[in-house]
Amino acid sequence: MKIGVVVFPGSNCDHDCQYVFKDLLRQHVEMIWHKETSLAGLAAVVLPGGFSYGDYLRTGAIARFSPVMGAVKAFANKGGLVIGICNGFQILLEAGLLPGVMLRNTSLNFICKDVYVKVENAATRFTNRCASGQVLKIPIAHADGNYYTDPVTLGGIKANAQVIFRYCTADGKVTPETNPNGSLDNIAGIMNADGNVLGLMPHPERSAESILGNEDGRLIFLSMLTSFGASELQSKLVGA
């Protein structure tokens, strides 16, 4: 199975994502420069974290017009699996592949720390290896993670179980105190209606290996592989 990791000017988590899929999960990984216009042969695409185009104008606003994004949209519209992490999430929002926008954190600070998120929907292609309500410890690192959308859209994504991760306490209580950035309804990650595009602010690639002290994030990548079928997974997951 081949996973594509898109590299924008200013991406800086691209190699971490490559490492997780290639070295930890034994998959083929192709790094895709943002000028590419074809995603042929890929099973899934990762939009990694970083500061594409220096976050100029708005986070993700310029990256969404990179040549590769036309191909990412077409890939997603055909049902291809797309995950956007942090800046990748911001790009998915600007590109309209997910609803809503990111505002500046209410504290105005860049926040870099471990947080707890609750898996609100475990029946997805990104969370099938988690239990419903499971709490994952995954770090965040962003200045613009304050998710916002209009009340009608918010009602829609909640009703449709598209809110996948919410900030919570270590024992899974979703409270205002656990909201690091002012995000609406403690939202940390959402999915599109078709279930093949996920955006999340936490960085699972930074918590995917025990040597880093925590491998909760690995469950998200494993879920993606699992969604392609267990038999393929078993043949590929040597040493995972």
Binding site: L57, F65, V101, L103
Partner: peptide, 8 residues
């Protein structure tokens, strides 16, 4: 298209 995000 670019300069403003008309959602906000």
């Amino acid at each position: 298209k670019l300069l403003a995000n008309t959602v906000i």
